[in-house]
């Protein structure tokens, strides 16, 4: 079953730069998809459209039954509640502990304290940070911070996890650790869409690879490798 269906999507920025051109992309439930391409190829724009940070000028984007292209600003939260987002630059709140940062995403739903506590501890265990709940982000390494972000992204059981270069700031070993966590999450049924520049990761994971060049999808491999495409 399709989770994401992008049809004829086009996006031009106000400056006149064409970021995406005629993009058609279908992603099924439970897939793990890499989106790769050189800088400026449009992969960030594509991924931003998935969580409706950007709107397409043309075309439609259906995610789990929601027409994202036509979603009004004040309704965006409905989409966001169904997806989790992980960034290269983490976006953690520095004045909150690891626990509070993750719980923050659940408090939005006004769950009771006990439910929040149980779920937060569960996901922190999943990402391997159960021992660091009381620490602040600046006391953690880059890899640990990224694990907190992943925990926050999945705490509400999203159907889709969007990762924008999650290993961009991390060393190779730490990156592989993060990929292991993402693979575990994927195995539990969450669809993952991830952009990356990291050749080793793509090669080792052997997942679907979508290649963007100058705003167009130029390749789509079922079990891709990096050398095949660049």
């Amino acid at each position: 079953m399709d989770l994401i269906r992008m049809t004829d999507v086009q996006k031009t920025y106000k400056t006149g730069t064409v970021a995406l051109y005629d993009v058609d992309l279908t992603i099924s439930k439970g897939e793990f998809v890499f989106i790769i391409g050189a800088s400026g190829s449009g992969k960030s724009t594509l991924i931003k459209m998935l969580y409706r940070e950007e709107k397409p000028d043309k075309g439609s984007i259906m995610i789990g039954g929601i027409n994202v292209a036509k979603l009004k600003d004040r309704k965006v939260y409905i989409l966001r509640r169904k997806i989790g987002v992980v960034f290269q630059d983490f976006k953690l709140l520095p004045r909150m502990t690891v626990y509070e940062n993750v719980a923050f995403a659940m408090e939005v739903f006004s769950y009771d304290k006990k439910k929040i506590h149980n779920r937060v501890m569960e996901v922190l265990e999943l990402v391997g940070l159960k021992g660091k709940v009381r620490q602040y982000p600046n006391q953690l390494s880059g890899g640990e911070q990224q694990r907190v972000v992943i925990a926050r992204a999945i705490v509400n059981n999203p159907k889709l996890l969007i990762c924008d270069e999650p290993t961009g700031n991390l060393d190779p070993d730490t990156s592989m650790g993060i990929m292991k966590v993402l693979e575990d999450i994927n195995k539990m049924g969450t669809t993952i869409v991830m952009t990356t520049h990291n050749r080793d990761i793509v090669n080792k994971m052997k997942k679907r690879v979508v290649v963007l060049n100058e705003g167009k999808i130029v390749q789509d491999y079922e079990r891709g490798k990096y050398y095949e495409v660049l």
Binding site: Y77, K91, L93, F109, N156
Partner: peptide, 15 residues
């Protein structure tokens, strides 16, 4: 950043 994250995790504008 705080507002951005609140929006990301699905807080409605009003909340």
């Amino acid at each position: 950043t705080e507002i951005e994250i609140m929006r990301l995790v699905g807080a409605s504008n009003i909340s």
